[in-house]
Design a protein around this nucleic acid. Structure first.
Lengths: 358, 358
DNA sequence: CTGAAAGCGCTTACAG
DNA sequence: CTGAAAGCGCTTACAG
């Protein structure tokens, strides 16, 4: 099967007996063409099954109609919901999206960035690992619009659309503390990732405000995969003085934790509380239904995609830093701990803080 | 911030005092260049931060280094696991992947195909809805390599990599029947989709072979979303003579069914059995762990991606039709029905059939 | 109302 | 060992 190329604008022009310019203009509806010649051109187009080349067009116009998004892993439920939404928005604005899974490894991220530069994408949505790189700086220098999605690189002066991670986790941990938990395991991703950093900060702040000493052994800092979350949870459960509840820093950790708990023969919430990060249908359908801090995925994705597109269109300037609120959803997976301590009376400072976040 | 273009090969050539051809050859390592001029060129490249344009290159070489995959919805756990795998393989072979969510609507699929033709992708992986279209035929006519992934279009003579859907469902339904279930609800996607068709066939065959009359009211044919699966399950549960078990035809239906069961205040498996399609960690972590027919996602994705790439490279011919086996995984969500009928003795015909599938 | 022609940024025979 | 030049398939001032 020989690679059968399609006809070009020149072929259409010849068949219709007009110039290439005229063909271009009828195809793109970019200047008036008399009805008669227009019809001739259209006939030639269908006869030859003319398929205009976006790549030739792109070389001339310097735009490719494609954007890219780099994400840690499309298998993450939060990420794929977001990508789904971004793809839809991009599509309605005439953009395709190239998807790049970095697995949170810097070399992969940089390699993708190089390729994307060569491909001359119109814009980039990036959930970065957290460090800049020559390719990243090159992209900036070329003036390709970039927006940080969900995560950001410290010190890069670029638009950001993110979530109040610290606030969300803070509220969740406060809830667990109110329920009598004192030893709370915390599953976190690498600190180089801004979200992991922020979530950890929320955890620490809640503990400090309640005067609960932090036990470093309760904080597991591992790669953001369910396997790692499972192993880390197993280690927590095997401690001589194990936690009575576990906060899982993302949905991958949450399944991992649940798996480890099942392996250990424990039942949630009677023997161990679980609080997840990220809401989704499996969390709701779980038995018991999972308490969770919910990110506004669609708002986040929509805001980021629309911002990028308006940047590409030159419609908006780039001094945007949006922080969307996270919401705590209390369900059945984190009932009060058995040997329940008397609930701490809320301090005045804490009450104010919580009120301020609403 | 003015759109600051990058330098071109011409600039580099001038700075290095050589021809464009030489620059091209050192950048691409495509012919010998003396050490001295090579160094001069390399110095010019870094000084100007030269970023070769893949789109100009593509215009000349007629290849873009990008493939596309159209899928119903990247939010589906089976799909995103597959896409993840495909993206990884494509990447190691130097291809980027454009992702297209069709939502199983023909107009979206066709629109994407048109755009992808214009973009001159090097190849297409398609999980088609099930009908051909002018754009699809145009793509074929242009000789762009296409492979059907997971689903196919009836009558299109193109390579296919799919799963033995009918066989998998058949085994699952047989298992439920052995466990005493006689009224088995079946959640299916639209019949235009080849996999829905095959899975329904497996269900029907199992019933027929056991002499169980099929009640059409037990078969729900709805869009492949968790919402639709939830509603359909609610309807099944509200029947005067409701099913004692439900087979969910994909992972979206499975969560949907679980949600409806929870809404109805029923507990699985004591009051209703659930058998899912697609295996994943949430199915394993669920309480009870879900019985499921497992698709070999990675094998499927790998086979499809590698086939497409070898087609692009002209390495392989296109008469491939691979059918990978599906596997039944029995866990806790489909215990024997309460008012248990005596297990049917297996018929000889059935024994043979099952043996033949191994 | 339409056309001739330059040019986008590369690659690649062809030539020496 | 390297260069001059054509050409990939479009768009778009410029001109009439």
């Amino acid at each position: 099967m020989a690679k059968q190329v399609s006809y070009t604008i020149k072929d259409v022009a010849r068949l219709a007996g007009v110039s290439q310019a005229t063909v271009s203009h009828v195809v793109n509806q970019t200047r008036f063409v008399s009805e008669e010649t227009r019809h001739r051109v259209q006939a030639a187009v269908v006869e030859l099954q003319y398929q205009p080349s976006a790549i030739a067009r792109g070389l001339k116009t310097k735009s490719t109609g494609t954007i890219a998004i780099t994400v840690p892993n499309i298998t993450n439920l939060f990420i794929n919901a977001a990508v789904r939404c971004i793809e839809e928005i991009a599509n309605t604005h005439g953009f395709n999206v190239i998807i790049c899974n970095t697995d949170d490894v810097l070399a992969k991220e940089e390699h993708y960035l190089e390729v994307l530069i060569a491909k001359r994408i119109d814009g980039l949505l990036i959930a970065p690992i957290g460090k800049t790189s020559p390719a990243f700086e090159a992209m900036r220098a070329m003036g390709i619009p970039i927006v940080f999605f969900d995560r950001y690189i410290e010190g890069s002066d670029l638009p950001i659309v993110e979530v109040d991670n610290a606030g969300g986790v803070y509220q969740a941990i406060c809830h667990l503390i109110q329920d009598g938990h004192r030893r709370i395991g915390f599953l976190s991703g690498p600190l180089i990732v801004s979200t992991s950093n922020q979530r950890t900060a929320g955890y620490l702040r809640a503990l400090h405000e309640h005067g609960i000493p932090v036990d470093p052994l309760l904080i597991k800092r591992v790669a953001s995969t369910s396997d790692a979350g499972c192993r880390a949870t197993a280690e927590l459960l095997a401690m001589p003085d194990p936690p009575t509840a576990i906060f899982a820093g993302n949905n991958l950790f949450t399944v991992g934790a649940l798996l480890a708990i099942k392996d250990a023969g424990l039942v949630c919430p009677d023997q161990i509380g679980v609080f997840g990060f990220d809401d989704h249908e499996w969390a709701q359908a779980y038995v018991p239904p999972l308490s969770v801090v919910r990110q506004p995925v669609y708002e986040l994705a929509t805001a980021a995609a629309e911002l990028l597109i308006s940047l590409i269109r030159g419609t908006e300037n780039s001094n945007v830093h949006r922080i969307l609120p996270a919401e705590v959803v209390i369900r059945g997976s984190c009932a009060p701990h058995h040997d329940v301590l008397p609930p701490l009376p809320r301090t005045i400072g804490e009450r104010e803080t919580i009120a301020a976040r609403r």
